[in-house]
């Protein structure tokens, strides 16, 4: 199968790679760019472990073909901390023990960041529905919701 050449921005950096036409963004990110923080839980868009943003929009990278991302802007969990500092969501996930095994954590962080940028003061219900596309099998979501609430509070404080 003929390959495609992709030139894209990932976590602020220009990245180029070549891949088969039918390769998913998930596989390119993991196997060609080396961003293994993007996880595969299902490959069918049901678990959210591979969540990334594409031009600011939350997507399952297993449902996007790399051929579609030429010239576009991608962020992953690896791009969340800035200047060596953890993002408030990352801090609060640790502080609230919002992860056990941690495999779903990158996807939750990316999805929660999109939520809080869009809606700085979400209700519990809004948080639960915004994160309903991300499966966690360890925590029962309790501490995840609390961590997102705490991070939202922290981010609102910083904005003031």
């Amino acid at each position: 199968m003929a390959g495609v050449h992709i030139s894209t921005t990932i976590n602020g950096d220009m990245v180029e790679f070549a891949c088969p036409q039918d390769e998913t963004l998930l596989n390119s990110l993991r196997d060609r760019v080396g961003l293994t923080g993007v996880k595969e839980g299902c490959g069918t868009g049901d678990c959210g472990a591979c969540s990334v943003t594409l031009d600011g929009r939350l997507v399952c990278s297993c449902l996007v073909l790399s051929a579609e991302v030429n010239g576009r802007n991608i962020t992953t969990v690896e791009g969340m901390s800035e200047e060596g500092k953890l993002h408030p969501l990352q801090e609060k996930f640790i502080e609230h023990a919002a992860l056990q095994c941690g495999i779903c954590t990158p996807g939750f962080l990316v999805a929660a960041k999109v939520l809080l940028e869009d809606n700085p003061k979400p209700s519990e219900e809004e948080i639960r529905y915004a994160l309903a596309g991300n499966l966690c099998r360890c925590t029962g979501y309790d501490k995840i919701v609390r961590a997102v609430q705490a991070a939202g509070k922290e981010m609102r404080k910083k904005r003031r």
Partner: peptide
């Protein structure tokens, strides 16, 4: 007490390496 877990930073930054990583 409830201190932060030692592998927390690895797991919130995508650095932690799982089976397929």
């Amino acid at each position: 007490t409830r201190p932060a877990r030692p592998d927390g930073v690895d797991k919130v930054t995508g650095r932690a390496r799982y089976g397929a990583d």
